[in-house]
């Protein structure tokens, strides 16, 4: 059982307890539990919200995931879904890079120097500033003519591309923005907390054995931070599968040619632009299934990371 209590005096019982729980529980029922059930039901219907819903059984699922072989080639029923799933996964390639940068920053901040608090606050700024304001800033930075990036490149004689309108550069541009926003943020604080939990004696013992800085990093720091790294990785992957909406909406409109459309943007379009409620619910449930599988992997292999 996840919550064993020693038997103690309890402050309240049934009725009192439910009074305290009620507001939260009602919210939970109306905006989480019932909607999830409703989404499952919805995925069996075709519904544009203007006409009455029409029961179609598993057709939505077939339209979404189905494939057939035509002339020896695989033809997907919804090639867009697979393309956008690939986009979503591709954008997550920054996760290891972000983690490494966060770890480096955390290691540097773990030294007893002056101004550490100052630097920590500076590094945390992009995290607190996030949202539409920062996305607008980046649309300015990536502007082909006036943007900071292309003007800086022009100084060294390179003519930069239209970052957000070029099929090759749109994804890397979004990823770079993500790294800038994430490197000194919450993950870095988690690493910092993890580093401070490593016993100093381990390093002293290694010093006596004449270990180099790199050896200490490889054989003490990294293994001791494994639970933290695992936690950050899983959380980033879960967030990654659900992410990308704001950037796609504000910066690129999902383009060029769908290069920056992620699953969440695709779901939004199906639900609230094209009003395919049933189909949108189906995609959302498939997304849920992916997240669920990752969470189960987390439980199975994550050990005691999450209390």
């Amino acid at each position: 059982m996840i919550m064993g209590f020693p038997e103690q005096k309890h402050i309240g019982r049934n009725t009192t307890a439910w009074l305290y729980l009620a507001p939260n529980f009602l919210g939970f029922l109306s905006f989480t539990f019932i909607p999830v059930l409703f989404a499952i039901v919805l995925s069996f219907f075709r519904w544009d919200i203007f006409n009455p819903p029409q029961f179609v059984g598993f057709e939505n699922l077939r339209d979404l995931l189905g494939m057939s072989i035509v002339n020896g080639k695989i033809a997907f029923n919804d090639p867009y879904f697979w393309k956008y799933l690939w986009n979503t996964v591709f954008l997550m390639l920054t996760i290891p890079v972000n983690m490494l940068v966060s770890l480096l920053i955390a290691i540097m901040l773990n030294h007893p120097l002056k101004c550490i608090g100052f630097f920590r606050s500076i590094f945390y700024l992009p995290t607190i500033c996030g949202g539409v304001g920062i996305l607008l800033l980046w649309s300015f930075i990536y502007n082909p003519e006036f943007g900071l990036l292309n003007q800086a490149l022009a100084l060294i004689g390179i003519k930069g591309p239209g970052w957000l309108t070029d099929c090759t550069w749109a994804k890397p541009a979004i990823m770079l923005m993500g790294t800038w926003g994430a490197m000194g943020g919450t993950n870095m604080l988690l690493y910092l907390a993890g580093l401070q939990g490593i016993s100093e004696e381990l390093y002293e013992a290694a010093n006596i054995d004449g270990a180099s800085v790199f050896q200490k990093f490889r054989h003490i720091t990294l293994p001791m931070l494994r639970p933290t790294s695992f936690f950050i990785f899983i959380m980033s992957v879960i967030a990654g599968f659900q992410g990308g909406f704001d950037a796609a909406f504000i910066l690129t409109g999902g383009g060029p040619a769908g290069a920056t459309t992620t699953l969440s943007y695709y779901i939004f379009n199906h639900a609230f632009v094209w009003f395919n409620m049933g189909y949108a619910a189906t995609i959302a449930l498939v997304l849920f299934l992916i997240v669920l599988i990752i969470t189960i992997i987390n439980w199975r292999f994550g050990g005691n990371v999450h209390e």
């Binding site: 059982m1 939970f28 989480t32 909607p35 989404a39 949108a280």
Partner: peptide
């Protein structure tokens, strides 16, 4: 406090924390 169904409800809360916003948003 102690009340009927406490542990089950709490487990339900934890279980729903990983449900993507896209799922509940449409309903």
């Amino acid at each position: 406090m102690i009340f009927w169904g406490r542990n089950h409800i709490f487990l339900g809360y934890i279980a729903t924390m990983m449900i993507p916003h896209s799922v509940t948003m449409i309903p």
